[in-house]
Nucleic acid binder design. Structure first.
Lengths: 227, 227
DNA sequence: GAGCGGCGCGGTACCAAGTACCGTTAGGAC
DNA sequence: GTCCTAACGGTACTTGGTACCGCGCCGCTC
């Protein structure tokens, strides 16, 4: 208990987020000033800007740390496991949003209504996309056309993420992690096809439905012998 | 000739753009105030905000009109010519940038340095992407998985555009229109393949380098047993 | 207990973007 | 000339964001 009357042991940062979300819902984003948020949280305006760089930042997750986590996950991968690393990394982001639960959904409602917040969210996503683009480009190597393929694939990766995330936010996805895996499998299958020079001698096999493993193995043998 | 000394018959909007670009180069974006820009253009600050919604807007193209042009181009298409319309529409955007010539390159240099301007550019691109997503989704119809495919394809379309545009901005593209056509052909070929539903129990295996077929077969067995 | 140093906080003052409003002036129609 | 419109400039205001200073609390040491 403090002498200013605020009884809660809730940290200042959390109180600010709650205050901001409540006020944005009540009056709208533009109609809410930084003073309003600070007042409701029971702190001074200075304190708000000490904890968050801007009024928008209050309701957004800590993208800096998440980007770092993604970068680190990508870094711990060899050429063999590159696509696994990408899938893991993008799942990292999705799970972080899901952990937020209701807060993520309230933010989604806001970003749907307020252009400034939507732009902000998009800019954040672009940072992830850039990370994936650089990683995939390095993985693909300097082959002709690889730069474009890397850019397309990175865009597809974050789009797959966004697609599943939005479905979860709208409560249309019962098992978002599984949906993300499926979406990522589709992305991977899109960009790793045997037709073109698919980079440096990669072998891609796509099989419809689950078949007898021995049949699969035989198919693989044939495919490899053709290559 | 006017009595305030400004001799030029150059329109106010153009003078403002030139003034802004010059000042951003000289002092940097943040170090340049709206007053500075207006002063150099020989107008009042009020006039600046009459012509442009914000300080950033001064150096960006009129995306509102371009978005409208893209929407109109997309609207005049049947199901048969949908992909042609998409290619035409995205070429429309590329050509508009190219028309700007040096101005587009100066803006590119700025967006590379200034985060606020980069975010702004990204937000603009997102609007085109949304347009393409909605158009492609409608074209693909309500088939299962179409929403995701539309999202992926829209992302690929704008990524292809951005890739070629950046190459032209860096003077790496001699014939940007041709490069865009090639990139768009690649995008279209990516998303119009006969194999299809990669979601319904398909198994995708990617192996880097050519290895012993028996090793590959063993890997496949393991993968299938996990599934 | 007395001193002390760091840390989180609040207050004030300031800057710059953007808005609202009002008065002025140039230029065309009649 | 007169009236009307449209574009411009100036002033004042709101608000996000920064810089700076001073205060109180806490734990530490002596």
């Amino acid at each position: 208990m403090r002498e200013d009357g605020t009884v809660s042991g809730i940290p200042v940062r959390e109180r600010l987020v709650d205050a901001a979300l409540d006020l944005f819902d009540e009056r709208g984003y533009e109609q809410t000033t930084a003073d309003d948020i600070a007042d409701r949280a029971g702190v001074g305006r200075t304190t708000l800007f000490r904890h968050y760089r801007s009024k928008e930042d209050v309701i957004f997750p800590d993208h800096d740390r998440l980007v770092t986590a993604v970068r680190e996950r990508l870094a711990t991968s060899s050429a063999d496991t590159a696509l696994v690393a990408v899938t893991d990394a993008v799942r990292l982001v999705l799970l972080r949003y899901i952990e937020e639960g209701d807060r993520a959904r309230r933010r989604y409602a806001l970003t749907s209504r307020v252009a400034a917040l939507r732009d902000r969210e998009i800019a954040s996503v672009a940072r992830y996309q850039r990370l994936f683009r650089e990683f995939i480009a390095e993985w693909m190597g300097p082959a002709p056309g690889a730069a474009l393929r890397a850019e397309l694939m990175a865009a597809a990766v974050v789009s797959a993420h966004n697609h599943v995330l939005r479905r979860w936010l709208r409560r249309d996805a019962a098992d978002p992690a599984a949906e993300l895996d499926a979406a990522m499998a589709q992305v991977v299958s899109l960009f790793t096809r045997p037709d073109e020079p698919a980079g440096g001698g990669s072998t891609v096999v796509v099989l419809r439905d689950l078949r007898d493993p021995e049949y699969v193995a035989a198919t693989i043998r044939r495919a490899l012998q053709q290559a």
